[in-house]
Simulated scan of single mutants.
Amino acid sequence: MSTMDRIQMKGNRKGLNLIINLLEFNSFEELIEAVKSKLEPVKNFYSGNAVFVTTYPIRLKEEEKTLLEKLLYDTIALSSVTFEESNRKEDLPSIFDGVEEGLTKFITRSLRGGQMIEFKGNVVVVGDVHIGAEIFAEGNIVILGQLKGRAFAGTSGNEKAFVAALKLTPALMSIAGIFARSAENEPNFPEVAKLVDGNIYVEPYIPTKFEY
């Protein structure tokens, strides 16, 4: 099982939520290494934010919480670390599964720097998303214009979510907690970003070839 399956990472405007299945680790040391690997690519982005750690279906020992908390503070300059526990996976936040056909919010204007959209579904913007603007969506993000701001799709953990734009040049992009930045060269054609084997893969949008 991959690190992505054992540790879910969900970001929103409140901070970062790590959901950890403790039964998938053979030792606490293995858990620590997996958390390090998961946080390293995003440590600069979440600096100054709060982190909520949810563990299931068993509990961490108090000394293990202390060590994990120290790791989090050492890796990211956090404002706070909060631990939550659950005995059942069913009690955890659900993953939005409407990426093929589900709740969708339409924004019929461009988003300026400083503006933010957060939605528990898919988001479609008819316009541009400028630098400094942010979109958090539990489903897909589709920009009928240029994406220059930040786009976070699949924030509840859906790895089938995608980000698409007529010109895909995000300052930062995330799908189900996996992060990437745009290439230096600006495309002159629509592109789609999706997860492939745990990494974000960007390809030209060709209607006859695009596989969801």
Rank of each mutant, 00 (worst) to 15 (best):
P93Y: 04
G145T: 04
S86H: 04
D97Y: 11
S79T: 15
L92V: 05
E134N: 10
T104E: 14
L111C: 10
L103P: 03
G145P: 04
F119K: 07
N140G: 03
E100D: 08
G102Q: 12
T108R: 11
T104F: 13
L78D: 07
E90H: 06
L147C: 13
L111Y: 04
V124K: 13
G132R: 06
T75V: 12
V123N: 03
N122H: 05
R88N: 11
R88I: 01
D74Y: 04
H130Q: 14
F136W: 04
S79R: 15
K148L: 13
R109Y: 06
V123G: 04
L144P: 00
I135F: 10
F136S: 00
E134Y: 12
V142T: 14
G132N: 07
D97S: 05
G132K: 10
L111A: 03
R112S: 15
S80M: 09
E90N: 12
A133I: 01
L111V: 02
D128Q: 04
S86D: 02
N87R: 08
M116G: 11
V129S: 03
A151F: 02
G98A: 09
T104N: 13
S94V: 10
F106N: 07
E138T: 09
E101M: 12
A151M: 02
G139S: 11
I143A: 14
R150A: 05
A77C: 07
R109K: 13
G121Q: 04
F106A: 02
N140S: 09
I141L: 10
F119S: 06
L92D: 02
Q146V: 10
Y73R: 10
G114T: 10
G149R: 03
D74H: 05
K89Q: 15
V124A: 07
N122C: 11
T108S: 12
E90G: 03
G149I: 04
G102T: 05
D128E: 09
N87A: 12
S94A: 14
E85S: 13
A77W: 06
E100S: 07
G139H: 06
K105P: 00
S79W: 08
E118I: 04
L103T: 15
A133R: 00
A77G: 09
I141R: 08
R88V: 06
L78C: 05
E85K: 09
R112A: 15
Y73D: 01
T108M: 10
V81T: 06
A133Q: 01
E118H: 03
I95S: 12
S110V: 06
E138C: 02
L147K: 11
K120D: 14
Q115F: 12
A133C: 07
I107C: 14
R109V: 02
D91R: 02
I76D: 00
F83S: 13
M116S: 14
G139W: 03
D97H: 13
A151D: 00
L103I: 12
I107T: 15
I131M: 08
